[in-house]
């Protein structure tokens, strides 16, 4: 009797928590989608400027999210460009060359780097910019380059870990075949292990792109501003989508601006959802390969 009651109530509680979680996520995201659906149009991006003029940089866009979108794209591209070679190289080192002792010590540092609040990485970038401003040149201030560097530090541990895990999870027979045929260690890594681990590494890179695109805490300390137009150089300030959404939520002048905020939120959500789906698809393909041995 008591057993029955416990059974019933625990099961009910589990289903209830599932319902609560689903309802809150669907509620929050659905609210943004429904309220902002109406603002999705070319006007959201380009405002009153003709799209072609804006794209060819003939005229500036003042009442659209085009500069913020371009800013985010440039920023993410730069950050990944900096972080990818270092992250993947370090990941290969951790998986293939490091001794167990180095693995555990370095691993601790990467876990800490992955765990520290992103605002601290931003504070670090800001202090570095100030340091250079005082010691090296007055021209250096928080800017696009500093933001990209800080974001690169932010996703570095993630790239290292996904690369390392992808390599370490390769089945043993893949690992021993090439050396048995006389390949050197380097040849084995380049021609066998890296191609086999590619989908894992690529999905890690894609998730890092998403992480760079959505981060706000780092960039708000390292050079993003509310209105800057298109970024003109690496040392200039710039606009970005997540910061645009944040500023709109804190202070919007009129209804039109608020609607642009909703629109920007949907755009950012869509970009992140797309990247996430892409990464999942690629990783599932990896799982298929491992299971059925095709390739």
């Amino acid at each position: 009797m008591v057993t029955r009651l416990i059974d019933r109530s625990v099961t009910a509680f589990a289903w209830l928590s599932g319902l609560v979680l689903t309802a809150s996520v669907v509620g929050l995201m659905g609210y943004v989608l429904i309220k902002g659906m109406g603002s999705l149009s070319p006007r959201l991006f380009f405002g009153n400027t003709a799209p072609l003029d804006a794209l060819l940089l003939r005229r500036q866009v003042f009442d659209g999210i085009f500069p913020a979108t371009v800013g985010t794209l440039t920023l993410v591209g730069l950050a990944i460009f900096i972080a990818m070679p270092i992250g993947i190289a370090a990941g290969i080192y951790m998986a293939e060359f490091a001794t167990p002792r180095i693995q555990s010590v370095f691993g601790l540092f990467f876990d800490i780097l992955a765990g520290i609040p992103s605002i601290l990485v931003g504070l670090f970038g800001f202090s570095v910019a100030l340091f250079f401003h005082h010691r090296v040149s007055d021209r250096i201030a928080p800017c696009l380059l500093i933001s990209a560097l800080s974001l690169a530090f932010l996703v570095l541990p993630y790239l290292i870990r996904t690369t390392q895990t992808a390599l370490e999870n390769l089945p043993r027979h893949v690992r021993v075949t090439a050396p048995a045929l006389g390949a050197s260690r380097l040849q084995t890594i380049i021609y066998v292990l890296l191609p086999q681990a590619l989908s894992g590494i690529v999905s890690g890179v894609i998730l890092s792109v998403g992480r760079c695109a959505e981060d706000t805490a780092v960039i708000m300390l390292t050079g993003v501003v509310a209105t800057a137009g298109l970024p003109s150089s690496l040392l200039s300030s710039y606009e970005a989508l997540p910061f645009f959404i944040y500023t709109i939520s804190a202070q919007y002048a009129d209804q039109a601006e608020l609607m642009r905020g909703y629109g920007a939120a949907i755009v950012l959500l869509a970009v992140c959802a797309l990247l996430f789906t892409l990464a999942t698809l690629i990783r599932h393909r990896l799982a298929d390969h491992l299971f059925y041995g095709t390739r």
């Binding site: 599932g18 979680l21 689903t22 996520v25 509620g27 929050l28 995201m29 609210y31 943004v32 309220k35 998730l207 998403g210 695109a213 959505e214 706000t216 997540p242 959404i245 944040y246 709109i248 939520s249 905020g261 909703y262 939120a265 950012l268 959500l269 992140c272 959802a273 990247l275 996430f276 999942t280």
Partner: peptide
């Protein structure tokens, strides 16, 4: 099929930008 769907939703949640949560929170919560 519902638990599997829930699992998928939870994974997807890790990809939702924090600033969008905050934005929805300000105007809804």
């Amino acid at each position: 099929p519902l638990p599997a769907l829930l699992h998928r939703l939870v994974r997807f949640m890790t990809g939702i930008p924090t600033v969008v949560y905050g934005f929805a929170g300000i105007f809804l919560l």
